[in-house]
Design a protein around this nucleic acid. Sequence first.
DNA 1: GTCTATACAACGATAGAC
DNA 2: GTCTATCGTTGTATAGAC
Lengths: 222, 222
Amino acid sequence: MSEDSGPPTSRRAGGTGQRSGTTRRRGRRPAGQDTRAALLDAARVEFTERGFDGATVRAIAERAGVDPAMVNHWFGGKDALFVAALQIPVNPDELVPQLLAGDPGQLGARIVRRFVTVWDATDGGPFVALLRSVSSHEGAARMLREFIARVVFGRVVSTLDTDNPELRAALCATQVAGLGMVRYVIRLEPLASADHDTVVTAIGPTLQRYLTGDLEPPSSGM
Amino acid sequence: MSEDSGPPTSRRAGGTGQRSGTTRRRGRRPAGQDTRAALLDAARVEFTERGFDGATVRAIAERAGVDPAMVNHWFGGKDALFVAALQIPVNPDELVPQLLAGDPGQLGARIVRRFVTVWDATDGGPFVALLRSVSSHEGAARMLREFIARVVFGRVVSTLDTDNPELRAALCATQVAGLGMVRYVIRLEPLASADHDTVVTAIGPTLQRYLTGDLEPPSSGM
DNA sequence: GTCTATACAACGATAGAC
DNA sequence: GTCTATCGTTGTATAGAC
């Protein structure tokens, strides 16, 4: 993930005296990166808790312990900070191979288990933020769409050599997204508090059918 | 600000430009002009396009052609207007019996077909608004949760006399919500443009299993 | 005449920009 | 840090229905 979008100004140490008054310090300025990382962390918390509109630049800066002007300086504005902060808590480069390793007949179960394990770790907070983003921010839906189609389920389905790979990927997305919505956003019981085994047992077969099963009605011979 | 030095507040807007054309006079309007309904319509548009936070009372009132104070007068505030405007485009009192009528083995298919039929009619707009509401407004998630659990799937599942009725209802909610999310919000192809038969054939069996099927792993004899 | 739906004005709070 | 715009809300005068 490119977490490296510097400020509009040059990032060369000798180019601009970023602060420190008139003293021009050559070389090291690691403090700036700390400020940027602190803003990202604070932004994730605030965006998670308040949504895009509800999260204020002031609150984010205050949480990060820096001046609100730093948001503009490092990211160019609230939108850019939002985009930078919206990172999915998994690394698909290693996620997909891990899912594909093992019994192909249990692939659906592994996906479900991984999903609840990842998101339960943060109580679903980032998932709620993601949902907010998708439904309220213009580019977020497109971003998530391409992420799902190309990176996550696209890679998984493409290795299975089945018919209708795109449809299968989309179907998987429906079940996984719906699980996250009900468990983390709507928090509908008993699913919201169900242990992982229960969830995997109930929903794993659905994913498995979408991945490798027959999508035609069982009585129809095509 | 004790003194408003700006030009907008001319003490008594006596002779200066009154609103050209249709002067919104004070006092009771002639019968037949339903301010309440106009506000509801405007609120749905605004909430759909801007989300709960983004939609302002002022903008809603302007769209309705009335004074912002009317929101308070008729609904008690923005929240109450939001709740009133958030109407699900189905009547569960007649929806559930219609779903239950017919072959029980095709119940899942009927639910899916009804779902896409209802929401396709509005291109999913209200669904997106609903998702925004759920993820950004505190009471919306609770409202939707109770609606799903008690009114929709709760009634359906309770007539089936199966084990784990609450879990089955929640599982149904995951698949239906996820379908709506992928089809109407993320708009992931080919599912976003798939015809009803394709969707029903692919997802109907999932609902059917959640409703009446075995939720234990098929290979396990326990 | 009474009631009420309505418009106008203004307030306190707060966000984002400069 | 300051400044400005705008938010949701409230008070009140008024005009028309009853």
